[in-house]
Design a protein around this nucleic acid. Structure first.
Lengths: 151, 151
DNA sequence: AATATTTGTAACTGTATCGGTCACAAATGC
DNA sequence: GCATTTGTGACCGATACAGTTACAAATATT
């Protein structure tokens, strides 16, 4: 349905940043993990930055890091930062207003869509980047130590 | 997000059929209410027919009608009939397996997506076409009587 | 101050999806 | 047989998306 991978990429990006802790990560490094082009990552980072989830710095020794603790970033905020519009869409052309069904169906559908949206957001609000990070790396501490040593 | 209006159209179609009761409706009539092309409607009807929600007949005096009572058709069934794939999508290219985050992020995301999907389906399972029909036409009985008289 | 590096962003490309349209065979009732 | 309607394949134009190139602005290093 959604041909759009922004949310998945955004969560991935934030998890990489969280994994790196205070150390800023370059878009190129994130792109390697996500297996895509650095510009794609920068666009995502830009959206996340505008939402206040990430802070970036230009120049040599630049890069991005989380603007908050991973436990303070919910997937709902991520979703809202990178995804416009709702889950479902109404008709492209407005229905016929001469038909009793056509006249009211959009209002009814909007109510349904709103219920769905609320349900989705309730789920996403309960999950933080920290939880994702922990599920990603059960051997988290070891991984981070190793990564620090490698630098 | 979803650039796809199938679900909205499908609910609209079924509501029109429910409104018409036992009387079969031609794709052309539905198309007028939805304000689109009859072929688009027939494609939707075909998917709904494959799901057993609608039965159609070719030939003169043909058309489509609900295969069940409106109260026995949930929006979840409609959703499953016309919408393939889930709400969110994973990466287009699989992430790097050399990165600890890349290695596991897809599994974690799949879990999240499943939770979201379940939440959505729970909402849709609770709403029937009959409920939609009643919200669409508070003056339902009058409308149907008038429509019958007009034939 | 000069240089190297990195972000932010605009512009363009190729691909996929979607709704809309035409065309026509198959089915059905008169 | 004839008119009508569904079912379906084929095609078109619009749109969205990920990927890519290119470059100005910002920043650290020397």
């Amino acid at each position: 349905m959604s041909t759009n991978t922004r949310f998945a990429v955004a969560v991935h990006v934030l998890t990489v940043l969280a994994w790196s802790g205070d150390e800023p990560v370059k878009s190129d490094g994130v792109a390697t993990s996500v297996n895509t082009n650095p510009v794609v990552i920068r666009r995502t980072l830009c959206a996340l930055s505008r939402a206040g989830l990430v802070s970036s710095q230009t120049g040599a020794a630049g890069g991005s890091r989380l603007a908050r603790q991973p436990g303070q970033i919910t997937l709902l905020e991520v979703y809202r930062a990178v995804e416009g519009g709702g889950i479902f869409s109404l008709h492209r052309q407005p229905p016929s207003m001469s038909c009793p069904v056509g006249m009211h169906i959009e209002t009814v559908l909007e109510d349904v869509f709103e219920e769905v949206q609320t349900a989705v957001e309730r789920v996403l609000a309960k999950i933080t980047i920290e939880q994702v990070l922990q599920k990603v790396g059960p051997c988290l501490t070891a991984g981070r130590k190793k990564a620090r040593a490698a630098r």
